[in-house]
Amino acid sequence: MMYRAEQLYQLIPQRPPIVMVDVVWSATETEAETGLTVTADNIFVRNGHFREPGLIEHIAQSAAAFAGCGTFLRGEEPKLGFIGEIKDCVLNMLPEVGTQLRTHIQLVTEVNGIRLISAETRIEGEMVASCIMKIFLKDDE
């Protein structure tokens, strides 16, 4: 199942101006493919380049959308997710406005609502960023 643009609002709790994923190409129980086209009005663009916080937020929201696919299929609201830890994060380049990022998210482990994911972001096959991220999903009270 593919999700685009505002359909993604069913998967992630973030809203403009900090929505940093615009497509989920596919998602399974253990992995997902997401994307983002960098537009000039993106809040993390400076001097025509998508800066470090934008890349990291794109990965975090890709992981959120991946988690959201599961809750959406169960008919639940997306849970708030918070980054707990970022490790081994390599930022090879700062993408230009107009490029499309494609990100592969892999679930490494999930214990008590804490998800460990690994992510790789590419532009036309070329590695842009990679990292390991620990994400806490907040349960509804």
């Binding site: 470090e52 990291i56 918070f82 980054i83 707990g84 830890e85 970022i86 490790k87 081994d88 994060c89 390599v90 930022l91 700062l94 990292c131």
Partner: peptide, 11 residues
């Protein structure tokens, strides 16, 4: 300055 690598960031 530009960030090249984050070895570890704990929130």
């Amino acid at each position: 300055i530009r960030i090249q690598k984050i070895k570890q960031c704990k929130l």
